[in-house]
């Protein structure tokens, strides 16, 4: 008998059954983020993204920017007074696509048109010392320590099975507008809450590091520290 699991689910208390029967859905809305990056992992299809005004008209001088992993960049300027719609064709080989906009935009995602979308709302945190950047000699090593809260409440949109890589937590180096990945963490239920890695500078110069984190329950970042260890 292979239906044991399904059969046993029938032991749910009536209060939970009533909850299901009473439940009403909510629309997914993201707003008031300084930077919103939306990662679309291993996806193929069309993402319909609508962007709405939540600010004064002068806020619309800067367009939203889309960058996908092969490096294709496109911009999008929302209408001042009405909802604008953007249909974005996600390429097959894209591991993720970043859609960045400032706090004056409100993004409402509609991903119903694509079957296998996995998406997260990601935030890029630049890690600077007091002077803005780390001055490192060739061979210097820095240690980054990220404490995560595995149970944190967050936007409940995680990656789907089979599309997890690349959308969790990334430590990297920022070179101008480019983000170069150094370590990609994929915390799971066995992670004890602390992620660590080291980076050795290949050349002498100024280094700027970043963490890209997702506001999904098991990768909510509690604290980040970075220090030179040699």
């Amino acid at each position: 008998m292979k239906n044991d699991f399904l059969e046993q689910v029938g032991t749910a208390d009536e209060k939970y059954i009533e909850e299901v029967l009473e439940y009403r859905s909510k629309k997914i809305t993201v707003s008031k983020k300084k930077l919103i990056a939306i990662a679309l992992a291993a996806a193929l299809g069309i993402c319909a993204l609508s962007i709405q005004s939540i600010a004064a008209p002068e806020a619309f001088e800067d367009p939203a920017v889309l960058t996908d992993e092969p490096g294709r960049i496109s911009t999008f300027t929302p209408s001042k007074h009405e909802t604008s719609y953007l249909k974005y064709d996600v390429p097959y080989d894209s591991r993720y696509t970043r859609i960045e906009m400032d706090e004056n935009y409100q993004a409402v995602l509609d991903i119903d048109s694509a079957e296998n979308f996995a998406f997260n709302y990601l935030e890029v945190i630049r890690l600077n010392d007091d002077e803005g950047k780390f001055s490192l000699e060739r061979g210097d090593t820095v240690n980054v320590r990220i404490e995560i809260d595995l149970e944190a409440e967050g936007l409940d949109d995680g990656p789907v099975e089979g599309a997890r890589e690349g959308v969790h937590l990334t430590f990297g180096r920022a070179v101008g507008d480019h983000l170069i990945e150094i370590e990609n963490f994929q915390p799971d239920d066995d992670t004890d809450g602390v992620l660590e890695c080291t980076y050795t500078a290949p050349t002498t110069g100024e280094y700027e590091f970043y963490i890209q984190s997702g506001e999904i329950p098991w990768v909510h970042v509690k604290s980040i520290s970075i220090e030179k260890i040699s």
């Binding site: 439940y23 859905s25 991903i111 998406f119 409940d156 995680g158 789907v160 099975e161």
Partner: peptide
């Protein structure tokens, strides 16, 4: 529930 199939799969997973 007015959510995507991807999200349903993710929550179930």
């Amino acid at each position: 529930l007015n959510i995507t199939e991807g999200k349903v799969k993710s929550l179930l997973f």
